[in-house]
Design a protein around this nucleic acid. Sequence first.
DNA 1: GAGCACTGC
Length: 735
Amino acid sequence: MSRSLEPLFGFVPRNVNAKDVEKALNGDINPFTKSPHSGQYKKILEGRKKLPVYSQMDEFLQTFQANQITVMVGETGSGKTTQIPQFVAYSDLPHTRGKMIACTQPRRVAAMSVAKRVADEMDVPLGKQVGYSIRFEDMTENGTTFLKYMTDGMLLREAMTDPELSRYSTVILDEAHERTLATDILMGLLKALAKKRSDLKLIVMSATLDAVKFQKYFGINGQKAAPLFKVPGRTFPVDVFYTQEPEPDYVEAAIRTVLMIHRAEDPGDILLFLTGEEEIEDACRKIRIEADDLVQQHPDAVGPLSCIPLYSSLPPAQQQRIFDAAPQPRTAGGPPGRKVVISTNIAETSLTIDGIVYVVDPGFSKQKVYNPRIRVESLLVSPISKASAQQRAGRAGRTRPGKCFRLYTEKDFMKELEEQTYPEILRSNLANTILELLKVGVKDLVKFDYVDAPAPETLMRALELLNFLAALDDDGNLTPLGAMMADFPLDPQLAKMLIVSPEFKCSNEILTIVAMLSVPNVFVRPPNLRKEADAAKAMMTVPGGDHLTMLNVYNEYMQNQGDRNWARNNFLNQRALTQADNVRAQLKRNMEKYDIDLVTNTDQRTFYENIRKALVCGFFMQVAHREGEKNMYLTVKDNQIVGLHPSCGLDTTPEWVLFNEFVLTSRPYIRTVTEVRPEWLLEYAPHYYDLTTASFPEGETKRALKSVLAKRKGKSVADTATDDKRGGKKRKTAK
DNA sequence: GAGCACTGC
């Protein structure tokens, strides 16, 4: 066989060196397609050769060959995400062995855009030899794709059907320092799997600060630590400045700093990090006013300043504004304009804005925290970590040397900030994760080798919930129902109610409700059109509960598909509705796979009642009981005082309500609320509502349920179930 | 009478 037509002739899997690889790269024939290279290939290759990681190809190949697990550190701009998987491809030669290389990313856009870039570099069409796989979109070809970029969640899903991950020769976990839930679980699974599958190689790619931790964690088979492969980055230096004294009001200090930069610093755009939508919009308004004042006072010295907000719920078209050029000087030769982007954490990892020279970092972000005692996840404004502060500062040095102004003292940075942001696994409700782990075949969840083990109470809460939902038996084993639930990309409560819904002849409707609950809020409320938006919402409100309203909104949306402006005219979020439709279709396919009937109850008298009963089957642990006269509820068992969220559409305050979420904002609220009947609680969740056990604390809710039970003993069950008089007091009385 | 940090299946 001629060497020129078989560029990989003589290559032995996992025994190649950089010299051979370079020869193949520089050749005229594409070794993976056997076709001549396209015109642009050589040009792209020249660019790749300038990446820091390229010059270390041989060192990498040696490390990769000699070790089953490698920890790799590559700073921003090193080229690791695009190049390392290609180096692995040349060493692994997965296409000759019917295998694939997986490279995981925490975000969908990253998986897509990196795959596109690498397909170009390898001179193959995207979706053939190089592809990507994300929810709702599989851009791979069976038997052809050997390099697959994918979201970490997607690989975790695959592990549930194939715990050996037998299709893969090498798995690369990229951005491991972000410590997403899925990446953390994958690290645990892959560590165990590596001991079982000696042919499987693993590369964990991360930022510097975490490397030693990962090295220690991945020391297996008698090794003390996994080897470290390090590549320098390619960024510009950033000067960091601290305040002399702590700032009592970080928003005010941030605004002041932005204006100071605008007045006194050389041209270059500014990035300011704040914590949320409201804070950002507020700061934008204030900066605009002050900047205008400044221009008025010093028209010859201060140029125009454009202020651009950035957060995830902003429509994509508005997010695009961050790429607009800074404003032109107002007069020819006048002082130059400048742009300031005011952003949440989204600009820390997900979005890169070129041309940023100044970063203003007040040192806070909203972070998820989980309180297992009351089973509540909430968002809290908290100090960021050192790693996060470094990441923020780095945003100033992507195109030229920059400056970062930290609105806290150097001493606070050194002494008060944590090294790393707490990994998500320590800040989340783990019910879903535990179900996934069990499905993958992990037996002992307490002894599972976590990189960071969650609090025992968090595990307890998750196991308890799954047991009450009958996903786990009393010995902690996955039940057939639990195995089915795990296959749905949903929280266990939602999966449970979807699976049981045919018993209430309402699976079509529950399917819709579950899909609507899986997407962001569909109701839009522009600040200047609140009245109109509220009126539009009132038109679609079903008085019996917010879940029923969601069903109604979806159905109306489907009936008005012909009208492109329908969503906007009715103050609904078109994107969210489309997404709900996508989710619904995916879940429907899942149901069909398990032969779960898709049925609708045609009896109008029990239509809504049956839906509410099905809701109880999943959410019986999220029920509250009205106490006293006012809008005051006590959650069952946990006895948390909560109020109906102002967005709630109920026209009365029913005695018993079921809620989708507990939110802790200005005060504790329950959101997305539907009226239920106490008889249903006793009937459909008898274990949870076992009034004889001590685990059910004494109190008003228990007394109320006891009296229901006493009454029920007098009557037949059938009688109580059809007794659908709507209790409750009128909610909206004269103010 | 309030909100949605950010992801992901």
